[in-house]
Design a protein around this nucleic acid. Structure first.
Lengths: 148, 148
DNA sequence: GTAAAACATGATATTGATTTTCAATTTCAT
DNA sequence: ATGAAATTGAAAATCAATATCATGTTTTAC
């Protein structure tokens, strides 16, 4: 069992909640998937492992995982929310391909610095931020060199 | 009538659509409000001017305005979408106060440059981006100097 | 060990925003 | 004025997110 599971366990204990078999399955699948999953995605994956898991449980568990600090919500401009787990990932932003939907994780310390400065300039106390660049990824950019 | 209305008119004509009285009212109110409006906000405002305008019409018109390039969708982490008009506004990003909901428009050319570079580094062709910094605005930061 | 209390679960219902449908109306080129 | 095409507002449908609820599990108190 990963140390992430311990973090989640401690979080649950702290709230008087239980680390049930369903929550274990859902957490593990979520942590082992290097992808940006919607509740529905995770529900489908979880069902493969346990035929009886319900959608509501996945939804609730993902919410708890997020509260525990192990995940954050991301928005790629779709209707549905997605989640990404944060273990083994430093803070990062995204390049999102509008063609294939692929999301590349990126980080630029200079940008981060400037964001801090920018906030300061307005007397603003930043707690978190979000930056997404939309466009065509390398592959899709090659495939579509001549926009119609 | 503003030149923005001309842009919208041309857009409509290009699609074989009509610049009706409802669309005029909705467009004008939208352009004259320096705020980030939801469909519902705009619906309420429009009703003040014309008691008979329907929600669906506001929704559809806002969609058209967006398609015409006069507006873009913004997401301040709420449930509902908001829209901001782009005329008289250069490209900008936002500082969003998580306490009072206020959104400050900001722009930093250095960040923009670095975003371009960052994309390049990954062979990514950016078409647009989004950057939001969440935290406490000047006022709210002062009011709450000691987090509990 | 047993009963009560607390928590969890899965199915279903509800919510709230968004989007579509549809019959009636308006627009506009002729 | 006429007819084809577009528009409208009300209502219904959609869809993800969330809440409810009856039933199961644990845990705890005795």
């Amino acid at each position: 069992m990963k140390k992430e599971a311990d973090v989640f366990f401690e979080f649950l204990v702290g709230k008087g909640l239980k680390f049930t078999s369903q929550r274990k399955i859902i957490l593990n699948i979520f942590l082992n998937t290097e992808d940006h999953l919607s509740v529905d995605d995770l529900f489908v994956l979880s069902r493969r492992e346990d035929e009886t898991i319900g959608y509501a449980t996945v939804h609730r568990t993902l919410k708890l995982i997020k509260e525990s600090g192990l995940a954050r919500e991301v928005d790629f401009g779709e209707k549905r929310k997605r989640f990404e787990h944060l273990f083994g990932h430093k803070h990062h932003d995204h390049l999102i391909c509008t063609k294939c939907g692929d999301a590349i994780e990126v980080f630029d310390p200079k940008i981060e610095k400037l964001q801090e400065k920018l906030a300061q300039k307005y007397g603003f106390k930043p707690s978190f931020h979000r930056m997404e660049i939309f466009g065509l990824c390398k592959k899709c950019g090659k495939r579509e060199p001549h926009p119609v």
